[in-house]
Design a protein around this nucleic acid. Structure first.
Lengths: 379, 379
DNA sequence: GTTTGTTCGTAAGGTTTACTAACAAACATG
DNA sequence: CATGTTTGTTAGTAAACCTTACGAACAAAC
């Protein structure tokens, strides 16, 4: 046919939209309003969303029927008019299971409430399991946490290392010996609950955005046994053409030297920043000057690698996740200085680089956010 | 209030959705179907979109009323049943003005039909104009093209160098002496037509996606007097936190040498790749080996700069736009080889790097796509 | 104590949207 | 010529949101 705009997909819509979809959207809008702003009356929500009080009342009735929203009582403050009936999301009605598979020797999980507060914890030593054995441990950990729940479980969120597609299939995760493993399918089948499996760094980026102060255009760099990253662009996670977005551990850095990497290349980001190597170098270093120099060079290399990404994406913020004692200090300073020196100050002068505020729970909390977003938010 | 998921924006919806919005969506869906697939009957469109024949008939009646769609005649092929009435987008009903401000000494524009075919051209020598004088020339060029139109003009699309925000305000464009210039507002006021002003490289990326064979995850690198780029992620242009996404010309490349840039840094991408410098070097070179070495090194530096971006974004494709005689050959080969050598073959082994197929019209055609998308597509 | 004005939540009725069901028109096929 | 198929339209229905109107409950003013 024609070869005009035809071949592209500039015009967005790809599926039909029915009235019920609009309803679902507005329903989520009401939920989100209660979520973000807390206790509100129906009239408040109407003003906030632009919907009428009538429509809000109708949606609220539906949500109360599902036990997602509850009436708190009457507003106390003194103003003219009929006192408002305060509503809130029923934050105690459901619980979420979040699981982090990204640590080297341990699978960690937690039971969270709808606010993301951790209610219970559980962990399972990996004990060098791979393949089916490792997958069985994920299931066992999930089962333990579901048993601890004293409310209906909204769903299970899992942050996995490696490359994970949108259906929750772990395409490759070398450490766990997984290739094309349908972890999401296996968990769904086992528990009959909504399950979301997502890359660990992407989960971490989401958590930082939801719980931390992160803006919508952010890169979270996760440094541990390996080096990975998760990108949030305009508040949305980036997955990439082969679901491998953020995999920067084996990109070569700079044009002068570096060690040989397990992948065969020279001077990959991981050869500079992986924590086992840093720990080993620091242990061998004698003076604190030597130690600082090791950390400074690692930070500088990170800055060199990130500079083109910051420039190309116009990032506002970079967040580091990993061992605080290694990252937070000389290393972080060297990274931001290098970034400033290698990009345009007009555009990136107020680029922020900081540690995550979420500590070790960042991945499992991000996985929980995915569940919440999938179940209560809109597609 | 609560500090839970509240602070983030994980749950998507931010505005209410009314039934009429759904209607607009489905309307665009029908238009897009005719656009992509060409002549179809109402029943064909119903099958294609999932809407019912009744709904499609209703939408089509509306579109015919606006002269956007026309009945072509009856389908000729011999099959049972009532013969279908073929429809098509009224590709001759409107025309679009596209303008490219990115060339160094000339503003170029064209009148296009809805298929993106160029009907008329016009250009205006910039003659070193800056500020108001340069803006006046844009208006004059647009006026010239609008006069040439023999159909209603759907809108005006402008691809401008520099940083352009979502409202079409050129925040900074050094070559044109523009700072915070509301070009979109000025054109709208002058002509009373829909106007879209967008960064030149973003426009080019859109054009490559619409007319060329580009996938949804692509970076278009535009090399000329300066070096810029436009990113398409999942088919959507990326603008960045300060609307400066793609501005990679002044990112430092590598860690060994380079020339001092006008910006003060050493070894910016532009110092390796800007065409005036390449031309000068090539003119000074004696042997073809020397020339090839110049191009090879330039290509290698581009690859070094892009490798972290390819890794972080998991790009599928990189498209080069600029002087073919410089880019297409040794330089492009060196770039892709460098990229392959510096990234993970498992993920980026089938990364494609190629020249644009759209030549010098890429920016103005992309600007026209923006108009089409804004007027006929959905938000 | 009464009146006035405000705010809240609900009820009733109307509009828009897209759906299902049914049908006439127009054709191919046996 | 009878039958079956496909097209596009008409008529009626369900869902979603809107506007309008109203009772309830309160503060403030008199």
């Amino acid at each position: 046919m024609t070869t005009g705009f035809a071949s592209g997909r500039v015009l967005r819509p790809t599926t039909k939209v029915l009235p019920e979809h609009a309803r679902g959207h507005n329903r989520s809008l009401v939920l989100q309003t209660l979520y973000r702003l807390g206790q509100r009356s129906r009239a408040d929500i109407a003003r906030e969303t632009g919907l009428t009080r009538v429509t809000v009342s109708d949606l609220i009735a539906e949500l109360i029927g599902e036990n997602l929203v509850i009436e708190i009582g009457q507003r106390e403050d003194a103003r003219p008019g009929k006192p408002a009936t305060l509503l809130d999301l029923n934050r105690d009605a459901f619980q979420i299971v979040g699981i982090d598979l990204s640590e080297y020797a341990t699978f960690r999980g937690a039971l969270l409430d709808l606010d993301g507060k951790i209610l219970e914890r559980a962990e399972l030593p990996l004990a060098s399991s791979v393949g089916d054995a490792a997958a069985d441990k994920v299931i066992a950990l999930a089962a333990t946490l579901i048993e601890k729940a004293n409310r209906p479980v909204l769903g299970i969120g899992v942050g996995s290392p490696g490359v994970v597609d949108l259906a929750g299939v772990v395409l490759t995760a070398p450490n766990l010996g997984w290739i094309g493993r349908d972890l999401q399918g296996a968990l769904t089948e086992r528990f009959g609950l909504p399950v979301i499996v997502i890359n660990d760094a992407n989960a971490a980026a989401l958590a930082e955005h939801s719980f931390g102060a992160a803006m919508g255009d952010m890169m979270l760099v996760k440094i541990g046994h390996g080096v990975g990253s998760g990108l949030l662009l305009g508040g949305t996670p980036l997955f990439g053409s082969r679901f491998a977005a953020g995999e920067i551990g084996h990109v070569m850095v700079g044009t002068n030297g570096g060690e040989v990497c397990v992948c065969g290349k020279i001077g990959c980001l991981e050869t500079w920043l992986a924590t086992p190597r840093l720990d080993a170098l620091l242990a061998a270093a004698m003076t604190s000057d030597e130690k600082n120099e090791i950390l400074r060079e690692a930070g500088e290399r990170l800055g060199i690698a990130l500079a083109p990404v910051v420039g190309a994406l116009d990032l506002a913020e970079i967040v580091l996740s990993g061992p605080t004692e290694l990252l937070d200090g000389v290393l972080a300073s060297a990274t931001i200085e290098t970034l400033r020196a290698r990009t345009m100050p007009e555009f990136h002068g107020n680029l922020v680089l900081r540690m995550t505020t979420l500590g070790e729970d960042i991945v499992l909390r991000g996985a929980a956010v995915m569940v919440l977003s999938g179940q209560l938010g809109v597609s």
